[in-house]
Design a protein around this nucleic acid. Sequence first.
RNA 1: GUGGCUGUAGCUCACUCGGUUAGAGCGCCGGUUUGUGGUACCGGAGGUAGCGGGUUCGAAUCCCGUCAGCCACCCCA
Length: 444
Amino acid sequence: MIQPRTLKGFRDHLPAQALARERLLEVARRIYRSYAFAPIDTPALEYLEVLTGKGSDETDKQLYRFVDHGGREVGMRFDLTVPFARFAAQHAHELGLPFKRYHMATVWRGENTQRGRYREFMQCDFDTIGTTSPVADLEMVLVVHDLLAAIGLERFTIRINDRRVLAGILERLGLAGQATGVLRSLDKLAKAGPEKVAAELAEQGVAEAATTTLLEMAQLTGPNAEVLPRLADLAGEGRGGAGVAALEGIVAGAQAAGVPSGRLVIDPGIARGLDYYTGIVLESFLDELPSLGSVCSGGRYDNLAGLYTKQPLPGVGASLGIDRLLAGLEELGQAPARETPAELFLAHFDPAHVNDYLAIAAALRQAGIAVEFFPEPRKLGQQLKLADKRGIPAALVIGSDEFKGGTAQFKDMAAQTAATIDWQGDIATLVAAVRERLAGTAAG
RNA sequence: GUGGCUGUAGCUCACUCGGUUAGAGCGCCGGUUUGUGGUACCGGAGGUAGCGGGUUCGAAUCCCGUCAGCCACCCCA
């Protein structure tokens, strides 16, 4: 016997979880499309050099790599940004700029696992490339907002910052050269606390006065209207000032687009470890589960595909981590409890009427109703019990008596009520009646 | 990858200093009810204690290894 098992960080998805996942994907797809992002797909496997080109040593360590049957050095994608960069470089001339795409796919990272942190997980990226317009930046914020709202989250916060603010302040402090290290340290502020960050900065040779300024900056909190002027003071003119102005524009634009205030917060402490960001950066958190980390992050970059083409491709985009989000929803008890897509259970009551059942099921399905027709003429009680256990919202019972009278019994499983449908043997009438009643059930 | 905690039935957990056939609740299956699901009652199935090795007369219990989950670091979705 081979022991059935899965690798560390790789998971099976049972119906309840898979349904919840698919629902998130559907919502994401709908929102992306509503902003006119177009779908693309790329291979799971790439030439190793394509993936490691940008390679920080960290991503190199996490990369799944091997030599394929043809002796090629290959790697599995660990995010969707690098494949997109390659894709953009390869197809830029056929795309037309600016170009907006979304890409929902599985990625692999050989890192250590934790809750909401897996070795195989799905990302839902969207990016706009070929424009530096602040409108594109704003759009990213709006998409993230609409996405999290459409998923049904009530309490979430999108935190934004602008790398130029950080860069400007670092320049003023004479720390431009060690930006990456300083940003990495600042990024830990929320988790590690100011003392730890101060100590780390000191280790990097940052002067005490500079550390004080940086921490003051990173810990600015309050309503956007209060944070902005204080940030402007710290940032001064030049790049920093431009960053503050950009943030101001985003806040105003988001308000104009109807984002409730409080959901979008300027947080100068958001630095993001990735060093390719050059403008706005964004992270989003579930208010009840901050420890889960960001479920959707992104930002603006100057040049997406510099490794693969001379054509400069500036862009802005973000990535929704649906597996992490799903872990969060589960923990909050907000994941749907259903384990079947069926909307209606059709009891297999009288075996003599199988063909009638099949005809009815076919008509219902034609009408867009997901029907489970029970395959065996088991005891009615058992059938209903199973339908209830699966969480099917409604059941249709038609026995020989009903067939004789041209009626049907429609049961609302959650409400435990039954109603009689009079259809006189006309399937179209039955379908219309079922559809109407389904709209009234809990799932409708 | 480094360090720590955990691993007993489908799920949540118990089993006093290592000591007989490892228990409970929930869930599951069946019956009471050969045409009607959440309650009640009755009955039943299900565990080589993650896996492998060691110590011991004897291991779920102690030790080592391994696999997996979680937590911290790191990094990030």
